[in-house]
Amino acid sequence: MVELLGPAEIRGLAAELDVRPTKKLGQNFVHDPNTVRRIVELAGVGAGDVVLEVGPGLGSLTLGLLGTGAEVIAVEIDPVLAERLPVTVAERGAEAAGRLTVVGADALRVRAAELPAEPVALVANLPYNVAVPVVLHLLAELPSLARGLVMVQTEVADRMAAGPGGRIYGVPSVKLAWYGRARKVAAVPRSVFWPVPNVDSALVSFERTDFESTVDEVNASGGVDREALFAVVDAAFAQRRKTLRAALAGWAGSAERAGALLTAAGIDPKTRGEQLGVGDFARIVAASRASGA
């Protein structure tokens, strides 16, 4: 049995460690046990799963994940919090202590070789200011990550799960679509955090489908690697109000060549980036390669 943390325990731990949550590290600690239970339930993890948690903080979600019987690899950049986490787990669920590994590292730079096992799921309350870069880095670095559930700022959640055609659709939307399908699954009230953030939060679930290994798509695109596709995506949205012919001029070498490549890919040069799906961007890259670039 693992005992979860409540508001009093969270504040007590913070006082003991002299922890003052900072905006720089995006520290907003969840102090509501019911929210933790909800996240764990939606994540669908259990005994035998190896779960990666980023930014465990004082351990609220960590305890909930361990309570399912899963093994948890917690990546924590703050050395004070990293040192205290195993103690908290031992105090509130001794039998679970052996299933926790704390890795003191920056999640934006952590490598697979630093982890004791291959995680199959990412479950985390992510710092708002680096949420998307962290998810993209981990998906690229850890092919074993098959699914995830992350708590992020609502605006970021909307972008992560957006499809082509809307104003919120952009670079995060397309790059995540390269790896799989994301969807916004639930809102999270501000009141469950300490300190209370000045933005709303939401949960985003993710299932890896690996665009690059989808046979039909790869055959249609002629085989496209991630870096090449991401470069086109970045160029297309750097000036999102421009047509793709203009926006991709720098990437292609000229507006004329960009227009020719778009036409070869079956895309109207007057189209804007927000109207294209990941498959469309793949065709642009394939057209560029076919032209000898």
Rank of each mutant, 00 (worst) to 15 (best):
A82G: 07
R84Y: 09
G222S: 07
V103F: 02
D106H: 03
P7W: 07
E256F: 00
E212N: 01
R111D: 12
D78Q: 00
V134C: 03
S205V: 14
R257V: 10
D78C: 05
L203P: 13
L149T: 10
A90T: 11
A177L: 06
P119Q: 08
V215P: 12
P143Q: 13
A47F: 08
E256S: 13
S144N: 00
E274W: 09
A235K: 08
L81E: 06
D158G: 12
P133R: 02
S221T: 15
G273D: 10
L85C: 08
L100Y: 02
A113Y: 00
E217F: 14
L149P: 10
P143T: 09
G165V: 08
A131H: 10
G26W: 04
G6C: 00
M151P: 10
V51C: 07
E155Q: 13
F206D: 11
V54W: 02
T68R: 15
P56S: 01
R208K: 10
L61E: 10
D210K: 04
G180E: 02
V54N: 04
M160Q: 04
A247G: 07
D49M: 10
A249P: 00
L63C: 05
L42Q: 14
S291G: 00
G64R: 06
V171C: 06
S291E: 14
P119I: 10
L25T: 06
G98K: 12
A74D: 06
P56I: 10
V199N: 02
A131C: 10
A70H: 05
V36M: 04
A82S: 06
A252G: 10
D210L: 14
V80E: 14
I284V: 15
K242T: 01
T243S: 14
T35G: 01
S254D: 04
P56L: 04
A162E: 09
V89A: 12
L58K: 11
N198G: 15
G273V: 08
L203T: 11
S288D: 13
K184A: 07
P269L: 06
D106G: 04
A258V: 02
L65P: 10
A290L: 08
T243P: 06
A182E: 03
G12W: 11
